[in-house]
Nucleic acid binder design. Structure first.
Lengths: 281, 281
DNA sequence: CACAGATTGGAATATCTGTTCTATTCGCGC
DNA sequence: GCGCGAATAGAACAGATATTCCAATCTGTG
C-alpha cells in the first residue's frame, strides 16, 4: 500500500476526477486500468457490483479495493458512494421538479427558482426532442433544402428569433439564405423573389401569427417547397408543408422553452451546409 | 400473495409506471406506500439498498420484496434492476458522447447524429448554467431592471435573436422594452433615447460584434445602467457592466448552443415582470 | 544474475443484503 | 363481538458482496 493511502479521500466527484488524472501516470499497471475504467464508465461504476466491474475492467476485485484505498477511501464501497451521489444529483426528476417549482417560483419571485424552472423546462424539451426525432423527416427536409437555390426563413413574434438564427447559421455555412423580417411591411416583396427552385422554412407556434400563415400560403401557390416547424398537427401551417416538424416544448409558467426548436434549427442548418459542401466538391 | 403475482413482470420502466398507476388504488396500504415511494424517488430506488429504502419509505424490507413479487418479479433485486437500467440509459455521459459524436457526425452527415449532438450540447450547457447560477448577480440584475424606465435590448449577429426575444418577452409582461435592431443604421439613435433612468441589456459573445461594444460604451457614458450577458471576464463588454453574467455554452462542431442564454433571458424577463407587477400593486 | 520491494492474483473470511417463514395484527362480514 | 382471511412485522436464514491476507509474480537495481 503506497503512502497516498493516508491522504483524505476526494469529497466531490470533480475533485476525484482531478486527482485521478493527476496521479494516473504514476500508478502501477492494474491500478491505472481500474482508474481508466472508472473515468470512462462512471455510470456502471455507480450501479454495478465490485466483482462485475472487475470482470468488465479485466481486473481482480481486490484491485478495485486497493484502488479505492490508494485514493484515501476505506474501501470500494466508500468510493462507489461517491459515484452514486453523483448520479443522484445529476438529473433529478424533471416532471416532479417542474411541478414543485411552478407552484412556488412565480409567487416567491425568487429568480433562482425561476432559472431552475426554465432550465428544467429546457432540459425536458430537449429530452423529448431526442425521443421523437424521426430520421425520415430529417433526411427529407435536408434533401429538400440542400437542393434549393435560396432558403427563405420566415417567423414572426417569438418565432422570429429562430428564423433569424437560421438565416445567420445558413449564411455562415455559405448557404444562400434570406430572412423575411417584414421590416417596413415588405414581407410579401421579400418572399416574391422565391420560386419553385428555392425553399421556405416557416416557423410558427400557437397562437399562430396570421402574417406567417398568409405568407406561407402565398409561397405554396408560387410552388415554393416548404419546411414547417410547428407545435401540432392542427397548426394552420401543417397542411402547407412538404416536410413538417412537430416540436413539443415544455413550458414553465406559460413561457415556453425554445431549446428544442433551436436544436432542430441548428441541425437543419449544419446538415444542409454539409450536404451542399459535399455536392459542390 | 395475490393472484397478480403470476403475471409476467413489466419490461420497461414506462410499462412499470403505467401498470403501477393502474393497480395502485387496489393495493393494500403498505404496498401502496411502497408504490408511491417507488414512483416518487425512482433514483433512490435504483441506487439504495432494500433496507435503506424500507427505512425511508417507512415500510418493512419484506414489504418491498412482496411489492416486487406482486408486480410479477421474482424478488426485490429484479425490480431494482429495472430502475437501474433506466438510470443507465437515461443520461449517458455528455462529455463522452459529445466527443464520440463530434468525430462522426460532421463527416457522416447523418442529421440524426447532428441532432443528438446539438441536444447533448444544449443539455450540457443547461446543466452548467444550473451549477454556476449566482443568486447575488440575479438579484442585483432584477433589481436594477425592475427599477428602470425602459429596458433597451442590444445584440447583433447570433446574439440578436436573444435581444429580440428579450424584447418580446418583456413587452408581453407589460414591461416597457425596446429593441436596438440597428435597422437602417439607426442603432445609435434608438439608443439615444435611453437615459440614466433606463437600463440596457447587452448581449455579446466572442467574436464580439464591434457595433455592440460601441453602443454599450456610449450608453455607459450616458450613465445608463448596463446588464451584460457574455462568455468571459475578458470580454470587451465586461468592464462596462453594472451586472455581468458569464454564460458558458458548450459547442458542437463549432456551433454553440444558445439554450443556457435563453434560459437566463427568460428568467430575467419573468423576474423583472413579476417584480414590477408587485411594485405597482 | 540475484536480490529486494512493489505489485498482483486468488482463496479465505467477515459483513451485509435480500429473501423466507411464522406469529401477530388488522379489516371485514356475520 | 366473533371468527376468518388477508396483510404485515420482525426474526431467522441463505446467498452474495466487499474485504483481507498470503503466496506468486513482476520490476528495477546493484
Amino acid at each position: 500500500m503506497s503512502d497516498q493511502a493516508t491522504a483524505e479521500p476526494p469529497e466531490s466527484f470533480d475533485d476525484f476526477q482531478r486527482r485521478l488524472i493527476e496521479i494516473e501516470p504514476r500508478l502501477p499497471k492494474r491500478l491505472r486500468q481500474a482508474a481508466a475504467y472508472a473515468l470512462e464508465h462512471p455510470d456502471e461504476f455507480a450501479l454495478s457490483t465490485a466483482s462485475a466491474l472487475a470482470r468488465c475492467a479485466e481486473v481482480q476485485a481486490s484491485t478495485l479495493v486497493r484502488f479505492a484505498q490508494t485514493l484515501g477511501f476505506a474501501g470500494f464501497s466508500e468510493l462507489q458512494e461517491l459515484f452514486r451521489s453523483r448520479l443522484r444529483n445529476r438529473w433529478p426528476d424533471y416532471s416532479e421538479r417542474l411541478r414543485a417549482l411552478q407552484q412556488n417560483a412565480r409567487d416567491s419571485g425568487d429568480p433562482v427558482d425561476l432559472l431552475f424552472g426554465f432550465a428544467d423546462s429546457a432540459a425536458a424539451s430537449i429530452a423529448r426532442l431526442r425521443e421523437v426525432a424521426q430520421r425520415r423527416e430529417l433526411d427529407h427536409a435536408v434533401n429538400l433544402l440542400a437542393g434549393a437555390g435560396t432558403i427563405h426563413c420566415l417567423g414572426q413574434r417569438r418565432s422570429f428569433c429562430v428564423a433569424h438564427y437560421l438565416t445567420y447559421a445558413l449564411s455562415q455555412l455559405g448557404v444562400p439564405a434570406s430572412l423575411i423580417d417584414n421590416v417596413g411591411g415588405l414581407g410579401p416583396e421579400e418572399l416574391a423573389q422565391a420560386g419553385a427552385g428555392d425553399a421556405l422554412i416557416a416557423i410558427s407556434f400557437s397562437p399562430y401569427a396570421p402574417f406567417t400563415v398568409d405568407l406561407a400560403k402565398r409561397a405554396r401557390r408560387a410552388g415554393v417547397p416548404i419546411v414547417v416547424v410547428t407545435d401540432s398537427a392542427l397548426s394552420p401551417l401543417a397542411g402547407l408543408a412538404d416536410v413538417r416538424f412537430e416540436v413539443v416544448e415544455s413550458d414553465f409558467g406559460s413561457f415556453r422553452s425554445l431549446s428544442a426548436t433551436f436544436c432542430l434549427a441548428m441541425t437543419l442548418a449544419v446538415a444542409v451546409g454539409e450536404k451542399r459542401a459535399k455536392a459542390a466538391a
